[in-house]
Design a protein around this nucleic acid. Sequence first.
DNA 1: CTGAAAGCGCTTACAG
DNA 2: CTGAAAGCGCTTACAG
Lengths: 354, 354
Amino acid sequence: MKKTEEKALVGVREIARKANVSIATVDRVLHNRTGVSAKTKEKIDAIIEELNYKPNILARRLASKQILRFAVLIPSVSKETDYWNAPLSGVLQAESEISSYGIQVETFLFDQNDKKSFVKQSEAVLRGNFNGVLLAPMFIEESSKFVDECALLNIQCVFINSDIPDKNSLCYIGPSLYHSGYLTAHISGYLLKENDKVLIVNISKEIDNHHHLLRKEEGFRKYFEDNHKVNEILKVDIRDTAYDSVKKSLSAALKDNTINLIFVTNSRVSSVAHYLEEEGIEDVKLIGFDFLTENIAYLKKQTIDFLICQKPIEQGYRGIMALYTHFVHASPIDKVYHMPIDIITKENHQFYRN
Amino acid sequence: MKKTEEKALVGVREIARKANVSIATVDRVLHNRTGVSAKTKEKIDAIIEELNYKPNILARRLASKQILRFAVLIPSVSKETDYWNAPLSGVLQAESEISSYGIQVETFLFDQNDKKSFVKQSEAVLRGNFNGVLLAPMFIEESSKFVDECALLNIQCVFINSDIPDKNSLCYIGPSLYHSGYLTAHISGYLLKENDKVLIVNISKEIDNHHHLLRKEEGFRKYFEDNHKVNEILKVDIRDTAYDSVKKSLSAALKDNTINLIFVTNSRVSSVAHYLEEEGIEDVKLIGFDFLTENIAYLKKQTIDFLICQKPIEQGYRGIMALYTHFVHASPIDKVYHMPIDIITKENHQFYRN
DNA sequence: CTGAAAGCGCTTACAG
DNA sequence: CTGAAAGCGCTTACAG
């Protein structure tokens, strides 16, 4: 069968014919290149408009020898969590899909407990002659500075995992942290009786005012407030992430209070689960974040009741694809793409796709 | 920048050079066409293997004038539910992405309350000279017969929404119904006290032994059994889906029993919500299925506590893409793709992507 | 059974 | 400022 007549006609060749110019000139106009008289450009633009011309992306990339270079600037996997494996695997998946179309992806990993390593890697990116960069802007100040320098070099930035809202990025792809906290509180509401007590646990080396864990806590508390819940909410910050330290802090917190539900604001929920199991504590509900192997093991045993997940693999995949779409299709991209807030339990985890 | 040498080399041209044949002959081998001597074929195959040749899909579709035709055979939107709008919109989205690559999609809608309309539309599909068809095999027998005839005509079938497991389809894309029921029970478990009573409500014109609602009920009951829950489980089948009839059945069921949680096995949960609201009943938890506008409205008001959803838009999208991948990339496809089982509440519905 | 040539819709030097 | 021609990696008649 043949393609429809109409389609066969609307191409650079047809535009050139109508405008009485060569296809090279049409190409120049299509790409806003210099060296076309205003008059010619106008005429061609009108015809493009009239014919509702859509370029054939296949042909374009096939003919073009230009290769596009994207950098990925995210944390490496640490002893404490292999969370970042997920976004990375999404990145790799996207890369394998588009690498044959002239896209190169290079990865720069930094230590999320060490700002200096971030700075060092970000400088390498700046030197690498990239068209775009996908980054996790964990360190707000340093990331902000980096993004400014990218702007100077005309490098497009995409944020994943957490956002710097006022920064001039192509887009942000990741959770709405506040709302994940709020949702967690909603679920917790179902598990709590009127006078039950809640313990919020922040486990992180870097808990400062900017830290995104605090946004989850904020959302969590707001839910209780909005719904006039009278449950007491206690809180403990644990800055030393080693298990012994977690254990000590939890013991202290649980000794003086009868806690009915623990909300861990990040993926370290497994160490709390470990503690509860070790101590034989069974009547405490436990909710935390992220689809990690360790967490899932506890979810299966129901030591963890719910995990909140935000498709980290997809974040990596979509991050690269956002750059790809921007450069290859030149089509506009949503400034913010909030990932769904997924509720994972013993019964649906096997069907979960990151 | 130039593409890497390596890439530039591995193409039909290089294979032809190595094999001392023309690229036309290489093309014949690549597509398993006739008219190549066994010896030549063998030699070329070896070189393809050795070079780890991957065809350039862009170039292939660009050069090929072949167009691919897919049919979509799903229910139309009915007075009772606009559920099928969602898969359809996924289909349309996929179509718009791939239509410029020579793919045509044609839609055949049938009335899910009328087997004859299915048969009629399926016959139209058979006559339409399609390469593949995406269908919702609601009517098991009729669908089964249709699939057999497709096989004769060498038309590939993809199932969505519900499966016919032993049928020779390309793949199934949709929920594991049993597990959605099981998960719903798990959530219900958190909402119930020891002696609370549960009411299962099936609202459907077609409740027979094959019907997929029953698989959800089965999973639901199994959870209670597995976890030695003693809650009493009542059940009502409502075959007349008009609101008045639903109202009558519910009134009868609720008059004689104190029900604490109602599980509606499909998207008709909104009519139960409507009833509860009308009667001013506030202490009954309500769980049902599907991300429909009506349901979401009740979810916001918390008349409905949880909705279980299975990304109907994505089912449509992936269904078409499965056919596309099969024909264009000729790459193998998972026989079963179970959709995640999503738990939707008042707090996360705004981030949900179908 | 095999090959030379044209063409898919674009981009890219190069020449004027 | 503009155009003719070659080429991206493949497929498709057509000729032998």
